[in-house]
Amino acid sequence: MSNNAILTGLSLGLLAALCYGANVPYAKLAAEAGASGPTVVFYRAFLLVALLGGLGLAQGGTLAVARPWRLPVLGLGIATSFVGLCYISSVAFIPVGIATILYYIYPLLILVASPLVDGERLTPARLAIFALAFVGLVIALGADFGALDWRGLALALMAASAAALQFFCAARATRGVHPAIAGFWTQLILIPVALAACLATGRLASPAVLLAAAVPVGLHIGLFVLAFVCHLTAARLTPPAALGLVFCAEPVASILLATQVLDEHLTPRQVSGGTLVLIAVVASVLMESRRKAVSA
Results as ranks from 00 to 15, higher is better:
41 V>Q: 06
48 L>V: 13
173 A>F: 13
261 V>T: 10
193 V>C: 10
153 L>A: 05
162 A>I: 09
83 V>T: 10
246 V>K: 03
38 P>W: 07
84 G>H: 15
130 F>A: 15
147 A>E: 12
45 A>M: 12
214 A>E: 06
102 L>E: 02
179 P>E: 07
115 P>C: 03
138 V>L: 06
293 A>C: 08
259 T>C: 11
51 L>G: 03
99 A>I: 01
51 L>M: 14
54 G>E: 05
157 L>Q: 05
179 P>D: 05
143 A>V: 09
54 G>Y: 07
52 L>W: 02
116 L>R: 07
16 A>F: 04
83 V>F: 08
269 R>H: 04
148 L>T: 09
209 V>E: 10
144 D>E: 15
258 A>T: 02
218 G>Y: 09
35 A>R: 06
50 A>D: 03
158 M>Y: 10
128 A>W: 11
2 S>I: 03
97 G>Q: 01
224 F>S: 12
288 E>V: 11
99 A>V: 01
12 L>E: 00
264 E>V: 11
85 L>F: 09
182 A>M: 12
10 L>W: 04
207 P>S: 02
171 A>V: 05
100 T>F: 00
167 F>E: 06
240 P>L: 10
284 S>F: 11
126 R>F: 04
70 R>S: 08
32 E>L: 07
232 L>H: 14
77 G>W: 13
71 L>K: 11
43 Y>M: 07
56 G>Y: 15
270 Q>W: 00
47 L>D: 06
133 A>S: 15
40 V>S: 04
53 G>T: 03
245 L>T: 04
231 H>R: 14
134 F>V: 15
19 C>Y: 02
39 T>L: 04
227 A>C: 02
87 Y>K: 10
13 G>Y: 03
141 L>K: 05
185 W>S: 07
95 P>W: 01
27 A>H: 02
258 A>S: 12
68 P>T: 08
246 V>C: 02
172 R>N: 13
147 A>N: 15
26 Y>L: 15
4 N>W: 04
80 T>H: 11
55 L>H: 09
76 L>G: 06
